[in-house]
């Protein structure tokens, strides 16, 4: 059989998505009531899925090292607390993070490709990716060229992702769609499809630099795109909502969406991540509350 069932679809054809239906679905997910052991399990699962992130102009090696320690030891006063999934930094801090996290199992992710705007030449982007891969990054978070997307040059967007994927080598590629700029759910679906067919290992909502960042409706559209892609190709693509998820309760809402849309195979840090910096402490606070019965002051949780 030589038919390529995965052959690239015509991205100029818009895949129908109904916004009202998506919002209804999300509202229904949010009525799920997560209690007792299932809550404890989910809080720890969510913590293990966090990509602890610092992406600021004022980042320094010291700050990155502190964050790495937090990633490996989120809350030492309690046993059985998992480490987070990864630390996400700018390219110049990859080596620092790699060193700090050595042997811990916590991955180093780096944004690249002229993050966050993506306005640079393909050569500059590939050079940047090659640099961070050589520095030891396990995961690359690239941004798509939204300008090209909006002018309808979907092949340009596709080819760029494919080229970056090649430059990644064995590093995992997360493709940031910047859904806050794409704005419509039709665009979100289209960009998700382009990214997956071009070779993304993960699709990711946002850079965190644009408001709104991750939202549930956008995430639901992306999860459904991942599901359709899986049914067509058998390939499991990961999902990372990033930015704007600050509360444990919200994180559980997202896990419910993953569970009921894609199922158990996606409920692990290999297939689902939260891009967040403040979420970890709220998860910890809720875990401690579940263990001890009392809420503790925010001062009992480290701010790295």
């Amino acid at each position: 059989m030589n038919t390529k069932i995965h052959s690239k679809p015509d991205f100029s054809i818009t895949f129908p998505v109904d916004q009202v239906g998506i919002e209804d679905r999300v509202a229904r997910f949010n009525t799920r009531s997560i209690k007792k052991d299932s809550k404890k399990f989910a809080l720890k699962l969510a913590l293990s899925m966090v990509d602890l992130t610092t992406l600021e102009g004022m980042d320094s090696p010291g700050k990155v090292r502190q964050l790495c320690y937090k990633a490996m030891h989120p809350h030492e006063s309690l046993a059985d607390i998992p480490s987070v999934a990864a630390v996400c930094v700018y390219p110049s801090f990859v080596a620092v993070a790699k060193e700090a996290l050595r042997g811990s199992g916590v991955k180093v992710a780096s944004v690249a490709t002229a993050f966050p705007s993506g306005h640079a030449t393909l050569k500059a982007k590939i050079d940047e990716v090659t640099y961070v891969v050589n520095e030891g990054a396990d995961e690359i978070d690239m941004v798509i060229s939204r300008g090209a997307f909006f002018r309808g040059d979907y092949n340009f967007v596709f080819d760029e992702i494919a080229a970056i994927k090649e430059a990644c080598g064995s590093a995992h590629l997360k493709v940031i769609l910047e859904t806050g700029e794409l704005q419509t759910l039709d665009n979100v679906r289209k960009a998700s499809d382009i990214a997956m067919y071009a070779g993304a290992d993960f699709i990711k909502t946002s850079t965190g630099k644009i408001v709104p960042a991750a939202t549930q409706p956008v995430t639901q559209v992306m999860l459904e795109a991942i599901r359709d892609f899986y049914f067509k190709t058998g390939i499991m693509i990961g999902m990372k909502p990033a930015g704007g998820i600050r509360e444990a309760k919200k994180a559980l809402n997202y896990l419910v969406m993953v569970k009921e849309t894609l199922g158990s195979d996606w409920l692990n840090p290999d297939m689902f991540r939260f891009g967040a910096s403040t979420l970890a402490n709220d998860l910890l606070m809720q875990i401690v509350k579940m263990e001890t019965g009392n809420y503790q002051s925010a001062d009992y949780f480290s701010n790295d």
Binding site: K4, R32, A42, K165, Y197, A198, G234, I235, S264
Partner: peptide, 23 residues
Amino acid sequence: MITDKDIQKKQRLDFTSAWTYDP
């Protein structure tokens, strides 16, 4: 780009094994 070797057999989704809701 996805190549033919990436294609696996399509499986049904599993909704129960990892996490179920308590009453």
